[in-house]
């Protein structure tokens, strides 16, 4: 399955990278080029999520769970892949639900920032995948300089988990508040 995963994973990476570029162009350009990018964006995002989910599923079959969940690099790869997939699914849903509206006001720049984080997530995921098959890049050194030794599993302590849960609850509350107002 490893070979299939390697082949498959190129599609979502390419689609998500192009989608991120399209978001940046659309945010900066409201002319014909930007509008053209925006029309193509759903294809990149939705196809990216579908193929990303497929690559993710095949990736889960490369090793038995005992191996994947015992190997620091395997854990990290899966963690970042999960977040990347969730992240671009978020982008796809936001764009699908709101279309042109996301390019007005502050949300235009929020989309740029969100796309930027997505690129970082996918970049790290790919880097870790490369390490798993013995292809190393300097990205690992950059992450090390920033404070993460990539050969160690990325996890947070219980207190941080609690903070994340509280923040997630606050975001949900914020969302419900906004939704309530929209319905009124």
């Amino acid at each position: 399955m490893a070979a299939y995963h390697v082949v498959l994973v190129h599609f979502p990476i390419a689609l998500w990278m192009v989608a991120s570029l399209a978001i940046v162009i659309r945010a900066l350009n409201s002319g014909p080029l930007g509008l053209a990018m925006d029309r193509a964006l759903p294809v990149f995002l939705i196809l990216g999520v579908i193929l990303g989910a497929a690559a993710y599923t095949v990736g889960l079959l490369v090793w038995p769970w005992a191996t994947l969940s015992s190997t620091p690099m395997g854990r990290n790869h899966m963690l970042l892949a999960s977040w990347s997939l969730a992240y671009y699914a978020l982008l796809a849903v936001v764009h699908y639900l709101h279309g042109e509206e996301i390019w007005t006001g502050l949300s235009r720049w929020v989309m740029v920032a969100v796309a930027g984080i997505g690129v970082v997530l996918v970049g790290i995921t790919g880097t870790l995948g490369g390490h798993l098959v013995g292809i190393y890049t300097e990205v690992g050194d950059v992450l090390r300089l920033l404070g993460w030794e990539i050969y160690s599993t990325y996890y947070v302590p219980n207190l941080t988990l609690v903070i994340i849960v509280v923040v997630a609850a606050a975001l949900l509350a914020l969302g419900f508040l906004g939704r309530g107002k929209a319905q009124n």
Binding site: V94, L97, V167, G175
Partner: peptide
Amino acid sequence: TLIAGVALIFAFGFALNATIASRKG
């Protein structure tokens, strides 16, 4: 950590959607 991260992304997406929706409304 993996689950918490996905939950955070989901919650952020929910907040983002709702906020943009409120602006539309």
